[in-house]
Design a binder for these strands. Structure first.
Lengths: 290, 290
DNA sequence: CTAAGCTGTCTGGTGAAAAAGACAAGATCG
DNA sequence: CGATCTTGTCTTTTTCACCAGACAGCTTAG
């Protein structure tokens, strides 16, 4: 019960740093339209001079762009920009997250990584309004759609509520449904959205590389009495999951008020016909042919 | 109007790779509560063994955590976890973004980085419903609160609307107000939220390091006739800016519907009494005392 | 067809990050 | 007090990401 004994003794191809810079630079230029779409990019030697790095570094960046389908490499001819073709991502309507999650819980797989009871973090205890000695049930789950993991969920539920369902229940049923079933009267929720870099284990669980940007959502759910019911810390792969919110202007003179539109239920796990990023094998592409 | 001739020939302190891994690993453990708060962390030699790296690498990671206020280092005693103390960030209510932005536009500074007219990206043209030859006004702005830049905004406005205000107007007045003033009847908006890694120039503009995670918002604003008025691509520093949405359950039998709560106006640029991260000088912490 | 230019794939050389270890100074506990 | 922990700060050595350059195979322009 502590060091899970993961010695982390992989070969670890290790990640290029300069190449990352160039990669991000070019990605920005492509996405922001500074680099005309469908046009041919500068040649590798030119890019190498422009960025003050060697050609191998440039190649590293271009290979990555090619893997993500942002460019197309034609041997002997050049590297060509491909219009992003944004798609394949699950779109979640923000004002409708719960319903959506329930729907999704039935269409996606769940992998339960951790399950147990412990003392809450101060932050969690405060958010849920727990007493000093009160324990919480902590679970870590990974949600998978079409074989690809897209979200990493850490949930905290007060022990008194958590004991009403089993580990197996969590594996098969959305947490919110379990809470309802246990008699908790869910009434309100506060969600905070941010972003973080993926740590090594989370990156591995989500099939990304360490340091990748993830969408983070912290959700605090309370019942009718205002007591904390659930504390969720969720991380999403932004290429597979997006939040969406439609706003409408409420006609109210000069008040300039806006209201969330009615739930549109855009969500659809879908069969995502996308470039299907080959996972990048840790991060390296290094042939290691030697 | 193409290669801005940025030769990028900096010395480039270059970033540790292994240290980054350890840093992110420990950060995750602290934030997810696996590492008990206020407790003493394992000693540097222990961490070195656990992660299979040398002590200097561990120190690199710990120094970074200390800079962000996540841990406290006490010479001779140990390194102690500090409860995150989430604060200092501007909190924007999601369902109320517009009003909020208008308020903020008056309390924050704006730096206009780029301004001009050009052909839109296919994606932008489609989103705004533009004709083949129609041009857009493209502007890049950085918003600054208390001397610290926190958002990077790229906006596209159809030329016919864009010409109604000047470059100086953009510097001083929120875009949405300008659009209103020009007679556009803003009626609806769709926002999509995601995350990305900061490219070199964006990172510099926002005072973060290259590769840092940023919150991204894409907003498409339309008028009463359904014609596109504004396309916004915004990047936010997640440590300085958060989205928030309060949900309430609408009492409607078993329908399980949720609605956004009325605007609470939590936003407050504030004087952010936080650890005030010393900016990390590009990325390095290296003492360079020699 | 020929020549120029591009990507793909090697080679060996170089410098900085990381490793390994030693030592000092402060904290803690018996 | 004194033994033993901790972090802080040096050393020297090793490793590997990056660089420079060459060459093959392909595409395209002339």
């Amino acid at each position: 019960m502590m060091g899970p004994m993961t010695t982390r003794s992989q070969p670890m191809v290790s990640e290029p740093r300069k190449a990352l810079r160039v990669y991000l630079h070019l990605k920005d230029r492509i996405l922001s339209g500074t680099l005309a779409s469908a046009a041919r990019m500068p040649s590798e030697p030119d890019l190498a001079i422009e960025h003050g790095v060697s050609r191998v570094t440039i190649r590293g960046a271009l290979e990555r762009l090619a893997e993500e389908g942002l460019v197309e490499r034609r041997p002997g001819s050049g590297t060509y920009v491909r219009a992003a073709s944004r798609s394949g991502a699950i779109v979640a309507d923000f004002s409708n997250v719960f319903t959506h999650l329930v729907e999704m819980g039935r269409r996606t797989d769940v992998r339960l990584i951790s399950f147990g009871y412990a003392s809450p973090t101060p932050a969690v205890a405060e958010a849920l309004g727990l007493g000093p000695g009160e324990e919480v049930q902590r679970s870590v789950r990974v949600r998978i759609a079409d074989g690809t993991p897209f979200s990493y969920l850490v949930t905290y539920v007060p022990k008194r509520i958590g004991i009403s369902y089993s580990e197996a229940d969590l594996r098969s049923t959305p947490l919110l449904e379990l809470l309802e079933r246990s008699g908790a009267r869910v009434a309100s929720a506060r969600q905070t959205v941010g972003a973080t870099q993926a740590g090594p284990e989370i990156a591995e669980a989500l099939g990304t590389e360490t340091g990748a940007a993830l969408l983070s959502i912290t959700r605090i759910v309370k019942d009718e009495a205002g007591a904390g019911v659930e504390y969720l810390y969720a991380l999403y792969r932004p290429d597979l999951y997006e939040l969406q919110l439609d706003l409408e202007r409420t006609k109210r003179g000069s008040a300039m008020r806006w209201a969330a539109k009615s739930p549109v239920a855009t969500g659809r796990p879908a069969n995502a016909t996308e470039p299907r990023n080959p996972k990048k094998t840790g991060t390296g592409k290094r042939k290691t042919t030697r």
